[in-house]
Design a protein around this nucleic acid. Structure first.
Lengths: 268, 268
DNA sequence: GACTAAATCCCACAATATGATATTTAATAT
DNA sequence: ATATTAAATATCATATTGTGGGATTTAGTC
């Protein structure tokens, strides 16, 4: 229970090490550039200390000076992401599988991982030119909306589900996952039984998703694979075939992860 | 001269903040997974301290526990890279341009940025299925080899060139850039005059590259654009056209960077 | 060339990170 | 199931190390 609660997460953020790292969190799509003055103010430390933090991050390449006391995220991050693309077991396990799935279905294939109470898209493959604003590598979404998320829920440990339900009762109801705890459980059981899930219009009106769960070598849930595309293309009599293709893809990736030498203990 | 020398870079690495960040450097393509024991040993601190560093990085998502005291790079990096793809001025400035260039030439188009005495590939576009091991986003290479690198050199400030020459005299000679300082300067001048460069087989026997320089709003060199592909496809009578296409692409990106509000002060 | 802001340097002080040890927790072996 | 080993966290006295106020230097602007 050490890394799950918000309280314990703030633990490390009260140290200088953790505080320095919170600077990275300031950079969002809405505010990708930050003047030092603002970073200093937000940190709440002295100017000297803030500058020291910034310099450390800058020297490591995680931050980059762009002009007149403004900073953006640094190029080292791009290097590190390359590392991950080449080394992450889950990413590698999807080699070929996603391309195949995209080919077979004629849609976009996605691979997501469970990460800090949300799903993070980590890999994608497109048969047609990629749609405007599809779920894409590096984006994270709520665990309660969309096929890629919902198909993960039934495999989460009980206690985690309970805590999540308590905190997000209303969100869960809005997501049509049940109006109380027992209905919620029943819904998840149904998802688990069918081994995959189909959802429509949960993010964009005309987009449908089909997803199946992915497990690691210790049979713990680690993420999901699926396809996404226009509803009118997916909700046809071909849907059953699509479901099978998705399940097969998930099976292959899971199988490959079982061949891994390092069985992950902790996930997300 | 503050961030350029190796000595000053070690400055921040002697503090606890900097030391913690060096953990990230341990993760390479050859050794993507590290047991805590090894991280502790490499840091040269006490077990307690090392664990604290690891925990901080883990809590921020930059590191991820995978099994029995092993760590890999964490998912937060994937999120941050997404940020950059969506917000980095240089990345955005290449919107459409790279695709167009790949289309027009029938080869792979690349965008690189100058970063800590090397070039970092930041964006790519392929007209055919991407070749086995092409220069790809997140990879960095020597500033002295390959078209994408060499075309940058002539635009670096004098003092920086002098220092680089002193340190890398032999590498520069091997790269056919000149056997002494004056010849080196002459070579760079020639490159500058032609506005682009063509190199062959500098990384892979049958791969040729064509590249042109990219400048920011303050007319400082920030990177390069170019195409790469099989030598027999590029070294034809169409080469002149290709050069023009590359120069045009570089011009467009530079132009767009001039429209940016924040003129970068520091680069690399 | 003068002015403004940003980044670094400097240094006394005490707050905070450190590391040896003990304890709890998790993974393996029997 | 139980025992055994290893990993991760908690504890805490000590002094090392980060802190912040201010001065100085450097860079960008007028």
């Amino acid at each position: 229970m050490s890394k799950e609660t918000d309280a314990s997460k703030k633990d490390t953020q009260s140290t200088s090490l953790g505080k320095m790292l919170t600077i990275l969190d300031m950079f969002t799509p809405e505010t990708p550039v930050h003047p030092t003055t603002e970073i200093i103010a937000r940190l709440g430390t002295s100017r000297s200390t803030a500058y020291r933090y910034i310099q450390n991050l800058n020297d490591s390449g995680l931050l980059q000076a762009v002009g007149n006391g403004n900073y953006i995220l640094g190029p080292r991050i791009i290097e590190l992401d390359y590392q991950i693309r080449n080394c992450d077991p889950m990413h590698i396990a999807a080699d070929g599988v996603l391309d195949q799935l995209a080919d077979d279905t004629g849609e976009s294939a996605l691979l997501c991982m469970l990460y800090s109470n949300s799903v993070l898209c980590v890999r994608e493959s497109h048969s047609k030119p990629r749609s405007s604003k599809l779920f894409s590598r590096g984006q994270s979404r709520s665990l309660f909306r969309g096929a890629m998320s919902k198909v993960i829920l039934p495999y989460l440990p009980y206690h985690q589900l309970r805590k999540m339900y308590a905190r997000s009762e209303d969100v869960i109801e809005q997501a049509n996952l049940g109006t109380d705890w027992s209905e919620f459980k029943r819904t998840l059981n149904d998802i688990r039984k069918s081994g995959c899930i189909v959802t429509s219009g949960e993010f964009y009106p005309d987009v449908t998703g089909v997803a199946a769960p992915v497990f690691n070598g210790s049979d713990l849930i680690v993420g999901s694979v699926g396809v996404a595309g226009p509803t009118h293309e997916l909700l046809t009599e071909g849907l059953e075939d699509t479901k099978e293709l998705v399940k097969t893809a998930a099976g292959i990736i899971t199988e490959r992860l079982h061949a891994e030498v390092l069985p992950p203990r902790a996930v997300g």
